[in-house]
């Protein structure tokens, strides 16, 4: 019995030494292990949207519409949080173009971001870009940041406003707006 106990100790110590030795050789071949965390997910309520119609005018105008609701679910169970951004391609109709920089996105307070579920009871809310600052769709900028620790699910419905300059020709324009979560 005493011998068995001693053997057990030696085996554990060897395992410890092996673990200690591993990082030294990691530069060439990185040993990996399997991670048990959940997924980070994004869902949109629809795959297309119509921002509405505007009548072109000499002074220019804007068209404003809401995009389908976005739901971000973080089941990774980590303390790292996530951020989402939104960007757009140019809006085109044949050869006619409205630059993505003419569009801005924001979230009106009644449209979120709303924390719909969280693993912790007391959590801070998410932060988002409001209408006053807006966010141009021509560049990468963080739109919503999760300030919540542990697993969480957050909903928000973005509003997009496109400035229609007086030089824009009347047509039906289309484009792609992408939501990115990392």
């Amino acid at each position: 019995m005493r011998k068995a106990l001693a053997l057990g100790t030696v085996a554990l110590s060897l395992a410890g030494l092996a673990a200690a030795a591993a990082p030294a050789s990691a530069a060439d071949v990185t040993a990996t292990f399997t991670v048990a965390a959940g997924t980070l997910s994004i869902a949109t309520a629809a795959t297309s949207a119509n921002l509405g119609t505007a009548t072109t005018s000499l002074t220019g105008t804007t068209v404003t519409g809401t995009l389908p609701k976005v739901t971000v679910t973080d089941n990774r169970g980590s303390t790292l949080g996530w951020n989402s951004s939104v960007a757009s391609t140019a809006f085109t109709s044949g050869a006619l173009t409205i630059a993505a920089s003419k569009a801005k996105a924001y979230i009106v307070p009644t449209n979120g971001p709303t924390l719909t579920s969280a693993a912790l009871s007391a959590v801070p809310s998410t932060t988002a870009i409001d209408a006053a600052t807006g966010l141009t769709l021509g560049a990468a900028q963080v739109f919503v940041t999760a300030t919540t620790t542990a697993s969480n699910s957050v909903d928000y419905t973005p509003t997009v406003q496109v400035t229609i300059d007086s030089t824009v020709a009347a047509a039906t324009y289309s484009g792609t707006i992408s939501h990115t979560v990392v």
Binding site: A19, A22, P23, A26, T30, A31, T32, F33, T34, V35, A37, G38, T39, L40, S41, I42, A43, T44, T71, T73, N75, R76, G77, S117, A119, S151, S153
Partner: peptide, 20 residues
Amino acid sequence: PAPDPARTGLGIRLLDAPSD
């Protein structure tokens, strides 16, 4: 990890991490 609601959309996760 919390129980997944049915419709979380498109999800991704890392499967491997380095032992060190």
